Deep mutational scan, measured.
Amino acid sequence: MGFKLLSKLLVYLTASIMAIASPLAFSVDSSGEYPTVSEIPVGEVRLYQIADGVWSHIATQSFDGAVYPSNGLIVRDGDELLLIDTAWGAKNTAALLAEIEKQIGLPVTRAVSTHFHDDRVGGVDVLRAAGVATYASPSTRRLAEVEGNEIPTHSLEGLSSSGDAVRFGPVELFYPGAAHSTDNLIVYVPSASVLYGGCAIYELSRTSAGNVADADLAEWPTSIERIQQHYPEAQFVIPGHGLPGGLDLLKHTTNVVKAHTNRSVVE
């Protein structure tokens, strides 16, 4: 069995187990497998329904001669939608809004960016022009300005110390501490036991640490421990890039980060 097929099978099995364990909360999309990078042309966006009122959005972007996937989250909030992270750029984010209108038909009224990198804030200006209120932590807003990236308009308070959590509509926002970046936030959907790890969490097929220019490698494993301790009931975990899975993604990420750190020390 090929690795790609095995990865998709694991996603399907995880979703099936969740649907059985929580039949009222989960209505997993039966329309197909989780979209992969090879299936999404740059400039297009796919939506994948995880649970009743919960979707991931998947886009792709060219970077350094390669094409990478990027995940975000959409959560229903009454007759409105909360968006977590842009679709990595203005063109993708405009396509995301169009796809949401086509498939869901509810307005996106608020959006949260989970850290300051372009795959999370690139497209904020498109959201703002569409009347979406954009939010991020003060740290993310400051770092985005320093980096020359787009800056969300509103500040999220109460997320300055490791372990801080605040309720934001249908989700809980959690600051686990520094990891992929010093400002990275985690998003949890309690009604569906869905954990969105953003770039602080890796997919299972990833074996290298990737972009760690703004990471705190020493603190990252401790931050992941905080996530595990705060959300032990999480059933569906979405990484910032690639295929979702279960809580095993947290341990896998820790292993990859520690291996990278150990290699760096040896070198």
Rank of each mutant, 00 (worst) to 15 (best):
F63P: 07
P170N: 15
G169F: 04
A94E: 12
V121G: 01
N71V: 03
E172V: 08
K4T: 10
A98P: 07
K258Q: 15
G131Y: 05
E233Y: 11
A144N: 04
H154I: 15
D125H: 14
Q103G: 13
L247C: 13
R76Y: 12
L13H: 10
L156K: 03
E172G: 03
I84Y: 00
W88H: 00
V42E: 12
S27M: 07
L195A: 01
P176H: 03
T60K: 11
L247I: 13
A15Y: 14
L185P: 02
V67C: 11
L159Y: 03
H57D: 04
R206H: 14
L9A: 07
G122M: 15
V45P: 12
G123Q: 03
V189R: 00
V75I: 08
T261E: 10
S223V: 11
L217K: 07
A111K: 04
E80D: 12
V266G: 12
S162E: 13
H241T: 00
A51T: 08
D118K: 09
L73G: 09
H154F: 11
Y231L: 04
L13K: 06
V256R: 05
A90N: 14
L9Q: 08
S139T: 14
V212A: 09
V75C: 05
H115Q: 01
G43V: 04
A129G: 13
K251M: 07
T93P: 01
A136C: 14
V28Q: 09
S30P: 13
A87M: 00
E219A: 13
G105I: 06
H260G: 08
L195Y: 01
P41T: 07
V266L: 06
L81F: 01
L249H: 01
P152H: 03
P35M: 07
A98R: 11
I100D: 02
I104W: 02
N184I: 03
D118N: 05
A200F: 03
I224N: 08
V54L: 06
E267Q: 06
V67I: 09
G123C: 03
K8T: 11
F26K: 11
V108G: 02
T36H: 07
V189Y: 05
E39L: 07
H117V: 00
L204F: 05
E33L: 10
D79F: 13
S161H: 14
E33R: 08
H115G: 00
A209E: 08
I58V: 09
A234F: 04
E44W: 09
Q61T: 08
E101S: 13
G105P: 15
L204T: 12
N184G: 05
K251I: 05
G240V: 03
N262G: 08
V265N: 05
L83G: 02
F26C: 10
V126K: 15
Q229K: 14
R46Q: 07
F116P: 01
L247N: 10
L204W: 13
P35T: 06
W55E: 00
P138M: 08
L82K: 00
S193F: 07
L195G: 00
P221D: 12
G72P: 02
I104L: 12
M1T: 04
E99M: 14
V194S: 02
T114H: 00
Q235N: 13
I84C: 02
S264H: 05
D77H: 10
R46S: 12
A21H: 13
H154T: 14
Y68H: 07
A144D: 04
A179M: 05
Q228D: 05
V189T: 04
T114P: 01
E145S: 13
L250G: 01
Y34S: 12
A66G: 10
T36N: 06
H241I: 00
E157F: 11
Q61H: 09
F174M: 13
R142W: 12
L13R: 13
T60F: 08
A178S: 09
T60I: 06
P232K: 14
M18F: 05
D52L: 11
E101I: 12
T254H: 13
H115M: 00
P138K: 14
I104Q: 01
G32V: 06
L96A: 09
A129I: 06
A15K: 15
G43P: 07
G198S: 05
T14L: 14
L82R: 02
G163F: 08
E44Y: 09
H252T: 05
G158T: 12
D164W: 06
K91R: 12
I201D: 03
T134K: 01
A95E: 09
L249C: 01
W88L: 00
T14M: 14
L9E: 08
G89K: 04
S223G: 05
A234T: 09
L97H: 02
V126E: 10
S161M: 14
E267A: 08
N255I: 08
L250A: 03
A178G: 09
E80G: 14
V67H: 15
D77V: 04
P107G: 09
A59K: 04
G158L: 11
V194I: 15
L127R: 01
L156V: 11
S62H: 15
D248C: 05
D52V: 09
L250V: 13
D64R: 10
F174H: 03
A209M: 07
E172R: 03
L250Q: 00
S205E: 10
S208N: 15
L73W: 01
D52K: 08
D79G: 12
D119S: 00
E172Y: 05
E145G: 12
S161W: 13
E80R: 13
G169S: 04
G43W: 06
D29M: 12
L243Y: 06
Q228E: 12
L24G: 08
S162T: 11
G148E: 07
W88I: 00
G198Y: 02
S160C: 13
P221S: 11
E39C: 08
A94T: 10
I20L: 11
E147S: 14
T86L: 02
G105N: 06
G246H: 06
V126S: 13
I238F: 14
R141H: 05
E172C: 03
E44S: 13
I50Q: 05
P107C: 04
A215T: 11
L185N: 01
S155A: 12
A178L: 06
R128L: 05
S31M: 06
E44P: 07
D119T: 00
F3K: 14
E99K: 13
R226T: 15
I186R: 01
S139P: 08
P152S: 10
Y202C: 04
R167W: 06
H117F: 00
R167G: 06
A25V: 06
E80A: 10
V11T: 06
V11C: 08
L73A: 10
V266Y: 15
E99N: 05
T253G: 00
L47Y: 00
G89D: 05
Y196A: 05
T134M: 03
W55D: 00
R76N: 11
N184T: 01
A94K: 11
T207I: 13
E99I: 11
E44L: 11
P107R: 14
A25R: 09
L250T: 03
R76G: 10
G2A: 08
P176A: 06
H115I: 00
V45M: 06
L217A: 15
R263G: 08
G105Q: 11
V265G: 13
M18T: 05
S56E: 12
W220L: 02
V132I: 15
S30G: 11
H260Y: 11
